[in-house]
Design a protein around this nucleic acid. Structure first.
Lengths: 234, 234
DNA sequence: TAGTGGTCTAGACCACCCG
DNA sequence: GGGTGGTCTAGACCACTAT
């Protein structure tokens, strides 16, 4: 079949479907026509309709089940995409100049809370690191990290004086699994000093655990200077 | 062509590609073979290879450009998907019982900071709402919200005594755009009381602005009770 | 068991953009 | 200019599951 003026691309189809949902032509919880029917309506093929609906389901608009059909989700559990930048890039993105400084680097036995969290053997060695990231010489982020030496033994060759462990890990151990959480914590005395904050001040905190093929690589806590705001657009 | 034992599905292909990246067989910044070549290697078709690579690019592993080819990203700007649940569902998901309570509902002229933020006319009317969400009768979230009446005049018919504005908005007003940000704030006296916290305690705070086809619908601040943690897996 | 979505094929045309 | 990815077609078989 040749493409007629009425022929819709998968992008057009997505747009039409979203419009119909937003204008109430198709109600939440109701069933869409089958892919075959929609293909006829849009002068398209099932393959193309399939791609459109598949992406909308992926974005959280639709729920699709074989035999049951495609249903409009009533509670739009919209899914937001956000990217996880390197601190360096995040700072550079604001136009500020990035500076890194190592505070502490020490091999130690994993504290028991960490061993428990990462499922390490009792007393297993980890490399503990504290470092600071600055934006135009103002404190931006305090990084506190533990790296499991058995999983990445080469880490012992790095002194992390010139650049941070995150840069190194990203280069050496790419593409792993990640657990990411966000909380608001209270600055203790030391954190407050590094971040140029008052003790007790609220601090936006990120916690990351990274695995490489099932093995825990590193645990990190990132304390952001007061005023930090993480923003996403959907 | 019939499917041989060597024939790979798009999932298999994704897995192989990720494995090769993780094992350093394909280095960051380097170019992958073309889709056509990969199709031959995997005893598959270009369509299938295309889907695999397209999804990996979408997940942040690869960068694809016509003519330039497919390149492995060295700075893994991994993209995380997180969903934005209704409070009700979030509470229910923890197994706790959800309870809602209206604190305040009032039509007022938009305060100037809000008018500025949402680009409203000076003195434009908004519906101001404060309400609480409880989990097993413990404070879970304090919601402070402003709704632009001109955009959704039907909101005046709702008293929001039985259920919150979020439930209503989600059902009635599909949003098209969303700005979402996260910060750590300091509890003021009133917030602290509602959240059963001490004044000055750190509070994880979410700010949401929602638009419907370019028109600002609502601005909301969500203050979470101490101990709240937002978690994602990637 | 019948109908729906999930996936694959083989081929085609096209848009983009690097060299 | 030519090679790469972007997309579409027409058809097929299959997997799942509601009924």
């Amino acid at each position: 079949m040749t493409r007629t003026p009425e022929t819709k691309s998968y992008r057009d189809i997505k747009q039409v479907v979203v419009d119909r949902i937003q204008n109430g032509i198709w109600q939440p919880d109701s069933l869409l026509p089958s892919e075959t029917d929609l293909a006829v309506e849009f002068s398209s093929t099932r393959t193309t309709v399939n791609r459109a609906l598949r992406e909308l389901a992926d974005e959280g608009f639709l729920d699709r089940k074989r035999k049951a059909g495609t249903r409009i989700l009533n509670a739009p559990v919209r899914k937001a995409r956000f990217s996880i930048p390197l601190v360096r890039d995040e700072v550079a993105g604001t136009g500020a100049e990035y500076r890194y400084s190592l505070v502490k680097r020490q091999v130690q036995a994993a504290p028991s809370w960490l061993a428990s969290r990462l499922d390490l053997a009792h007393g297993q060695d980890v490399l503990h690191i504290r470092c600071m990231h600055y934006a135009d010489n103002a404190p931006f982020q305090l990084e506190v990290r533990w790296i499991v030496i058995d999983v990445v033994p080469e880490v012992l060759n790095e002194d992390f004086v010139q650049s941070g462990p995150n840069d190194w890990l990203v280069r050496k151990v790419p593409f792993t699994n990640l657990e990411l959480s966000f909380t608001a914590t209270k600055a203790d005395t030391e954190t407050a000093e590094f971040l140029d904050a008052a003790p007790g001040d609220p601090v936006f905190t990120t916690e990351r655990i990274t695995w490489l093929r099932g093995a825990p690589v590193t645990y990190a806590r990132l304390y952001f200077a007061p005023g930090y705001r993480m923003t996403t657009y959907i």
